[in-house]
Simulated scan of single mutants.
Amino acid sequence: MRKLSKKSRITATVAGVALVAVGGGAAYAYWTTTGSGSGSAANSAGGGTVALHATFNAGLTPGNQTNVAYTADNLTTSSTVVGALTANVTTSVPECLPAWFDVTAVTSNSTVAASATGISVGSGVLKFNDSTDNQDACKSATVTVNVSSQ
């Protein structure tokens, strides 16, 4: 092995110090860098509605009432809250007057999770009012409670 001259040693030392300085400077710049940016994506437009159901016992007669259970199916990809419920009655026989029936809908303001079915969202009462009119047309008629939410 040959000995380096004094000039070669100084050159090698300066080159080494320069490499360390350049390498250290790059690391320093990396750790103190700044920047900014942003990202965006559109939210869901709500993608649909829930299906509401009213369930009650059959066999209602004039002057009697039955409880109504309101449930919801949410086939969307996000949860939703079912708010104020409204309900009305229709019948399968035109002579069986919907005016002879009263139905209530007490809202529970329930959250219905995405893809959930059969979730209770309220309750009410269906009453078949007794009348002085002949109500025979309602015998075997199908009574339907229609429910909606706002």
Rank of each mutant, 00 (worst) to 15 (best):
V89S: 01
D136H: 11
A27Q: 13
G124I: 03
G63K: 00
N43T: 15
G122P: 00
D73F: 08
L4E: 03
A51Q: 08
T111Q: 14
A26P: 04
G35H: 07
S8H: 08
T86H: 06
F56C: 02
G46P: 04
G47R: 13
G35M: 12
S140C: 08
G59E: 02
F101T: 00
V20G: 03
V82Q: 11
A21K: 08
A58P: 07
S5W: 05
Y70K: 12
T71L: 14
A141F: 11
Q135E: 12
Y28K: 06
A141G: 08
T86K: 04
K127W: 11
C138Q: 00
N129A: 05
V17I: 11
I119G: 08
A114D: 03
I119D: 02
L52E: 01
W100F: 09
G124R: 01
Y30S: 13
G47E: 15
A54R: 01
L19T: 02
D102S: 06
V103M: 01
T80Q: 13
C138M: 07
L19N: 02
N88G: 15
T117D: 07
T61L: 15
A27R: 10
K3P: 14
Y30C: 10
A116S: 04
D73R: 02
V112H: 06
A51P: 01
S115G: 15
E95F: 09
V147F: 03
V143G: 04
A12Y: 12
K7D: 11
T34V: 09
F101D: 01
S78Y: 09
N129H: 06
A15S: 12
V20A: 07
V20T: 07
C96G: 02
W31G: 10
G59C: 09
A141I: 06
G124Q: 02
N67E: 09
P62T: 01
V93A: 00
A45D: 12
S36H: 12
N57K: 14
A41H: 05
N67C: 09
K6P: 05
K6A: 12
N129G: 02
W100L: 06
T11D: 02
S110E: 14
V103T: 01
V82T: 12
N74P: 11
T49L: 15
N64R: 15
S36R: 07
T13V: 11
S108E: 12
W31V: 15
S110Y: 10
T80H: 12
N146I: 03
G25R: 08
A114K: 09
N67L: 11
T117P: 04
F128S: 03
L4D: 01
